[in-house]
């Protein structure tokens, strides 16, 4: 089980518990503001863009090539950007903090 904290564009903090699936699913299941997930999680739309907090970047890992390309289309992308639908939750991510990118 992992406890994941989302910080939304309006500054609200939301902590959810989840043992598997993607970060996007965890956010959608809990109605986290700003995670729209238009494409339903197939790495096609970039509406689940998050910024991983610096201390978690290594454990979350880098984006894949298709994901990186989509991120390059976004205005607010930085070196800590990921698409939440491409991050799988596991126990090692217990305590993870991510910020939902403003769009």
């Amino acid at each position: 089980m992992a406890s994941i904290t989302f910080i939304t564009p309006s500054g609200a903090t939301r902590t959810v518990e989840r043992k598997d699936g993607s970060l996007m699913e965890a956010a959608v299941q809990n109605g986290v503001e700003g995670i729209d997930a238009d494409c339903g999680g197939v790495c096609s739309c970039a509406t689940c863009h998050i910024h991983v907090e610096p201390e978690w970047v290594d454990r979350v890992g880098p984006p894949g090539s298709a994901e990186r390309a989509l991120l390059e289309l976004q205005d607010v992308t930085n070196e800590r950007s990921r698409l939440a639908c491409q991050v799988r939750i596991n126990d090692a991510l217990d305590g993870l903090v991510v910020r939902v990118a403003a769009r």
């Binding site: 699913e25 959608v28 299941q29 109605g31 997930a37």
Partner: peptide, 14 residues
């Protein structure tokens, strides 16, 4: 359930 756009509970919350 995995293809729902939002779980039913989210609409109730909103």
């Amino acid at each position: 359930d995995q293809i729902l756009i939002r779980p039913v509970s989210v609409y109730a919350q909103q």
